[in-house]
Design a protein around this nucleic acid. Sequence first.
DNA 1: TTATCGATTCTCT
DNA 2: GAGAATCGATAAA
Length: 215
Amino acid sequence: MLHRAFFLPPALEVAPLLLGTYCTVSSEEGAVTIRITETEAYHGLGTAGVRDEGAHAKNGKTARNASMFGPPGHAYVYFTYGMHYAINFVTSPEGVASGCLIRSGEVVSGHALARHRRILKRGGNAQHDIPDVQLARGPGNLAAALGVERATHDGRDLLTAPFALEPGSPPKHIAQGPRVGVSGIAGGPAFPWRFWEHGAASVSAFRPGKNVPRT
DNA sequence: TTATCGATTCTCT
DNA sequence: GAGAATCGATAAA
């Protein structure tokens, strides 16, 4: 089990350290465990020396991002694009909005439940099977595979049930680059705050945001 | 293989 | 009312 102090440094420091960590989410249906292979750091209001225009908390605390300002080692779950949830690990002390988006992972146990949830979400269409490496590929898919939703998981402590975190096997090579789907300068090379395990098949495809500078 | 676009609803301005 | 830390299907090359 990870210690709470692990989540005290700013997200930019914690994000690469999360790679390889095992994350389990339990429910009445069962448990699904993933090994984290891709993360992104976001620094909201209160992080010293940084103004991250790509963070939900860039303009301060709102009803949506309130849990980002909460204690470290808790979950920030948000709903986006009308159909997807995504999960962040809150880092940094209370009052400082810093967090790591968990973008992708490889399912290590609970494959059947994860696949069931994914198929259910796409409307029960099981005609096209989902390969294991794609079960938790991308933040929306990852949240679906783990059964994470805002109503039941937002603001919850990551160190107690239904969550469980175990130190895992860190990647041999960590790659770093611009964040996915973030618009403006914050989505460009000036903010290489996305970290992933080099060569991992479970890492999501890169999608640039709008109005992102090339150089 | 790569690029574009529709789905669907919540949040903040 | 606009845009969103996305996904997957479909079109184009």
